[in-house]
């Protein structure tokens, strides 16, 4: 596999955003459930996949994973199969979904990538926790509200950031008139 300078730098920057969201706690949105808060730290990996393809998505996810392993505070993520592996998959699945839907409507594709990328994270992390006996299957329902919030936030943020960046790259200067004639 050959990774070029562009992929290294963009993945590095996105990985850095994931780390920053983690260390500043901005990446945690309190959800009223037992496990505490919803995370948005996986979103950079999805955005990497949407904007630059699977390699960047995978690399950015790997950095997020390594960070969550090394900076773990919960005791659940010390195992790389729980912390790193699922995060590597985020970039892959969200890229697939994005690629499949992009031609129809890029906003829908980005939203779908956000949903699928988030579910990849949740399903594989929870799955690995269950497999390693850290989480009883019966505890899964308590995670659902958090997972729902994460899915919604990821879909929104992925669409808006992807749109913003593509807009900059497109070079167009003026928006079209909105329906209600405001801004």
């Amino acid at each position: 596999m050959k990774i070029n300078v562009r992929q290294i730098v963009v993945a590095g920057v996105l990985g850095a955003i994931a780390i920053v969201l983690g260390v500043t706690q901005i990446g945690f949105i309190p959800v009223p459930n037992l496990s505490g808060s919803a995370t948005i730290m996986h979103i950079p990996a999805i955005i990497g996949a949407v904007l630059e393809g699977p390699v960047v998505g995978i690399l950015a996810g790997a950095i997020f994973g390594i960070f969550s392993m090394l900076n773990d505070t919960s005791g659940l993520f010390t195992n790389p199969v729980v912390s790193v592996l699922p995060r590597i998959l985020i970039g892959l699945t969200s890229w697939y979904v994005y690629k499949a839907l992009e031609k129809r409507n890029s906003d829908v594709a980005a939203a779908a990538a956000g949903v699928v990328g988030t579910l990849t994270n949740t399903v594989f992390v929870v799955g690995a926790l269950i497999a390693f006996g850290l989480l009883p299957v019966e505890a899964v329902p308590t995670i659902i509200p958090q997972a729902l919030v994460e899915v919604v936030i990821a879909a929104i943020v992925t669409v808006l950031v992807a749109r913003g960046v593509k807009l900059v790259r497109s070079g167009s200067t003026t928006a079209s008139e909105s329906k209600d004639g405001t801004y």
């Binding site: 913003g164 807009l167 900059v168 070079g171 167009s172 003026t174 008139e177």
Partner: peptide
């Protein structure tokens, strides 16, 4: 300017 993209 009202509909101009900020980045542009």
């Amino acid at each position: 300017f009202r509909l101009r993209y900020v980045y542009a």
